[in-house]
Amino acid sequence: MSKSWLMVIIAAGFEVGWVIGLKHAAGWLEWGATAIAIVVSFTLMIAASRTLPVGTVYAVFVGLGTAGTVVADIVLFRGEAKLGQLAMIGLLLIGVIGLKLVSQEKPEETVEVNRA
Rank of each mutant, 00 (worst) to 15 (best):
G13Y: 06
E15Q: 13
V39N: 02
T43K: 04
V62K: 01
I9E: 01
I38V: 15
I74C: 05
L91E: 00
K23A: 12
V54W: 02
A37H: 01
L83W: 13
A47T: 12
I74F: 01
W31P: 02
G55P: 07
A72N: 04
V62T: 14
P107D: 12
K82E: 14
L93V: 08
A47E: 11
F61P: 01
I97M: 11
N114L: 11
M7D: 02
T43Y: 14
A48V: 04
M88S: 15
S2F: 12
G32C: 11
V75R: 08
V102C: 03
I97L: 14
F42V: 14
G68V: 00
A67V: 08
A12Y: 01
A59E: 08
R78A: 14
T110C: 09
D73K: 12
I94V: 15
L6M: 12
L83I: 14
V102N: 02
I97W: 11
V113K: 11
I9T: 10
V19E: 03
Y58I: 07
G98S: 04
L99S: 07
I46R: 02
T66K: 00
A81E: 08
G17C: 15
A26R: 15
N114P: 01
L29W: 10
I38M: 13
V54P: 04
M7S: 09
V16E: 09
L92D: 08
G32V: 11
A37Q: 05
L83D: 06
T51E: 13
L76T: 10
A11K: 05
L44M: 12
R115P: 02
L22R: 04
A35D: 02
K23V: 12
V60C: 09
I74P: 00
G13P: 01
I36W: 09
K82H: 12
V62A: 15
L52W: 11
E80I: 13
S49T: 13
D73H: 13
T34P: 01
A26K: 15
V39I: 15
A26Q: 15
I94K: 03
G55Y: 12
V62E: 05
